[in-house]
């Protein structure tokens, strides 16, 4: 063996100059085009679907839009009996709003707490399994939650939790907020438990949603908390910060991501249907009481789509669907605007 033989000189002769002008080989050019067209087609197709759904909803609700118009938003009653035909979305908007609010109220601190536990507190052998179990909650079908809620959670609420809350809160009358039809003055927070335990109410709807949004908010918050740089953590500890002070710094650092997680949870809470209708009582009432039954926008659609047997009824249903879609859209737009403000604040200010 006499060393390495180079098969060509170190500086090889340049390729023939004409080579770069030669046309690209046929099949490669076509492959490029094909992928380009497929990608573009995918984009156009999904945009078309969105527009089509929107168009169908507007078309379907056309009659109701003309006959009810904006009164839809100021009417509470929902009475589809032919001849009466009174349709208002107010109670359902309220129901969606209240259950979503409750879900976020309970779910956000809980999820962030779990995420903090997983990323910053749990020993390694524990973080993995806890993480996995929380994510497993996301894999449970919504109808299974509903069934559990209906047969386990609701009776438990009615018999155990709600009586306790009821007996405590009903005596606490701090802020007068209005008058009942009977003439009695309505006080906060006693009004939150008016009517007594029922088990099928706003509280039940809010609680079932809490469990359902827990995994998504936890998983995303956990992932963004893991992005908290080691240098900043060391920096905070090095200045004498406690564990909690450092954790607060991490939460502030990750606030944009956590906000995104909360928004995804909120979107899920707004759209979630089956589990909620099984525990919320399904009435068109608007009550400050957490123990009152209610209904959500998606709930009324799921409950009544089979029964919408005359044109204006069906049209009003489409109208509800349109409002639901627009409110999702609106939350998304607001969320994006706030998100860009938060992240702009982090990078610039």
């Amino acid at each position: 063996m006499s060393g390495i033989e180079f098969s060509r000189p170190a500086y090889s002769e340049p390729a023939e100059p004409g080579v770069i002008y030669a046309p690209q080989s046929g099949w490669r050019k076509w492959l490029d085009r094909l992928v380009y067209i497929a990608a573009l087609g995918g984009v156009l197709f999904s945009m078309a679907i969105l527009l089509t759904i929107f168009a169908v909803l507007v078309h379907g609700s056309w009659q109701a839009l003309g006959r009810i118009g904006l009164h839809f938003f100021t009417t509470q009653a929902w009475n589809p009996v032919p001849g009466r035909d009174k349709y208002g979305v107010l109670a359902f908007v309220y129901g969606t709003g209240v259950t979503t609010f409750l879900a976020l109220l309970f779910g956000v601190p809980l999820s962030i707490g779990v995420a903090v536990f997983i990323t910053r507190l749990a020993p390694r052998w524990m973080a993995g399994p806890v993480s996995f179990l929380v994510e497993l909650l996301a894999a449970i079908p919504s109808i299974a939650y509903g069934l559990w809620g209906c047969f386990v959670m609701s009776p438990w609420l009615q018999n155990y939790l709600e009586p306790v809350i009821y007996h405590v809160l009903r005596h606490i009358k701090i802020i007068p907020v209005g008058k009942y039809p009977s003439g009695n003055i309505e006080f906060f927070p006693a009004n939150l438990v008016r009517g007594g335990p029922s088990g099928s109410d706003f509280l039940a709807g809010g609680l079932i949603l809490t469990i359902m949004i827990l995994p998504i908010i936890t998983a995303i918050t956990r992932d963004v908390l893991r992005q908290f740089p080691q240098e900043l953590e060391q920096g905070a500890y090095g200045l004498g910060a406690t564990w909690w002070q450092t954790t607060r710094l991490a939460l502030v650092y990750c606030k944009a991501g956590i906000f995104g997680a909360v928004m995804l949870g909120m979107a899920r809470a707004i759209g979630e249907t089956m589990a909620v209708i099984m525990v919320i009582g399904n009435t068109d009432s608007i009550s400050a009481s957490l123990f009152a039954g209610g209904q959500t926008m998606s709930g009324v659609l799921a409950n009544e789509f089979m029964e919408a047997d005359h044109p204006i009824y069906l049209s009003a249903m489409f109208y509800v669907a349109l409002v639901l879609m627009l409110s999702s859209l609106l939350t998304n737009v607001i969320a994006r605007a706030m998100l860009s403000r938060i992240s702009a604040g982090r990078d610039k200010r």
């Binding site: 240098e231 060391q234 905070a236 090095g238 200010r349």
Partner: peptide, 22 residues
């Protein structure tokens, strides 16, 4: 008190690590 100890012994790190604050 470790927090107090760290207050009394400031530390500067290899990589500048300002917090994302003003």
């Amino acid at each position: 008190n470790v927090m107090e100890l760290r207050r009394r012994t400031g530390m500067v790190f290899q990589k500048p690590n300002p917090f994302p604050k003003s």
